[in-house]
Design a protein around this nucleic acid. Structure first.
Lengths: 222, 222
DNA sequence: CCGTCAGTACTGTACCGTCTAGTCTAAGCG
DNA sequence: CGCTTAGACTAGACGGTACAGTACTGACGG
């Protein structure tokens, strides 16, 4: 029964060990997200990953270490997912509006996921115990997005598509104008309050509309 | 030595019991905010409130009950603090801008307090275990503020000071335009990241400026 | 044979909620 | 004033459970 998964096709001892490690990580992610840090016990992780507790402690020295590993890995992966790739060359005001809408929606669709919402709750709840994890989440999440947006807004302003005097502030406002409402709602009301895609698109559009009403070049509007 | 505080001047057994209850609540608030729900043990609460554990269980039946009592009380009190009182009669666009700035700043100053920030973290971290507490916080916090704002914006629009077609959306956007950036920052970076009053005022002004740029009557601006 | 792992027992600690035995205070009564 | 009663409180022990991390035994694969 234990041989159902033949070491992910490598067959070697090394591959088997790596498989165990992967299984532990998967199980630990699940359990930590479901039960929180203190509410998680290592026995359950071992059981769910079909691995003995000793193996868990062989791969990750302690509960703390495993928790930190899980959270930083998830944070990094999530940060890469929303990574704003190179901004295309836009010349038209309409193009800009469409681009901002798409960007906003993509960001919303990634962040407003049960897994990532629960990660956020988890990290926030453990700010006192693990301040570094929270700082990492902040830097890889909001801060990263805002920096990229600020740079983009500066270029758009140079190109005459926006009238932004303080790109940093504009970026912060755009980011939260789009994300805040659904994020806070889902944060406190639980995963069942995560809006469906159509509604997320509405949030994106409303945010972009207001942003452009404030920062769009007056001559170019409508 | 025990007679330093003579039962809050009533002297009676009833007054003494009420004092104990108050002491327990104070200690419990402190310990829960500091250590979280699971991280808190009842012995510490009893010790810190200078009360025997038996008395704690006499006043509040269980750890859950005490926790719920603490959180709902704090939530209600905080909600009352920022309660938008009756909006004055405004006729001038400049008056409106000043009023919105003051309102925004007051809200920020109340919410961005170590005690309330930690309450927020605590509730968010326990969303799964205590969903009702999170819902209460949402209703007494953001939702309450947004409803009041929406009503005010509708009146301002009738009076010709704003051009708001969807008061609910405008209220949501105003609320988060002002609060999001410092709130999220302090949430993840800890109490040391709570901005000083001068900076809070800047957040308020920037939020109001962008809001009015989008929703202020074009003729009346500047 | 040697390394890796499963299974499991074990240690030490922490903690919720209860229980017991006794103290303190206010009040009623002779 | 002395005695009693009732209720609230203290201090600490205790039962039962949970859990982090370790130790040990036996099996399996190369």
């Amino acid at each position: 029964m234990e041989e159902a998964h033949p070491s992910s096709e490598t067959g070697g001892n090394v591959g088997r060990s790596a498989d165990k490690r992967r299984a532990i990580l998967n199980a630990a992610e699940d359990v930590f997200l479901r039960s929180g840090y203190l509410g998680t016990n290592m026995d359950e992780i071992a059981a769910q990953s079909q691995v003995s507790k000793q193996t868990v402690y062989k791969h990750f020295g302690s509960k703390d270490a495993l928790f930190i590993e899980i959270v930083t890995t998830m944070t990094n992966e999530a940060g890469d997912l929303v990574h704003p790739e190179d901004v295309p060359e836009l010349t038209d005001f309409h193009e800009l509006a469409d681009y901002l809408c798409d960007y906003a929606y993509r960001q919303l669709a990634v962040v407003l996921t049960p897994r990532l919402m629960q990660l956020r709750r988890l990290v926030i709840g453990e700010v006192v115990r693990f301040p570094d994890l929270a700082r990492t989440l902040y830097e890889h999440g909001p801060q990263r997005a805002i920096s990229a947006l600020a740079a983009a807004f500066e270029r758009f302003t140079d190109r005459g598509l926006l009238t932004v005097s303080d790109p940093q502030t504009a970026a912060i406002q755009f980011n939260w104008l789009v994300m805040s409402a659904p994020l806070n709602q889902a944060m406190l009301l639980g995963d069942s309050a995560i809006p469906p895609p159509a509604e997320l698109r509405r949030y994106a559009e409303q945010g972009v509309t207001t942003f452009l009403a404030a920062y769009g070049r007056p001559a170019a509007q409508t």
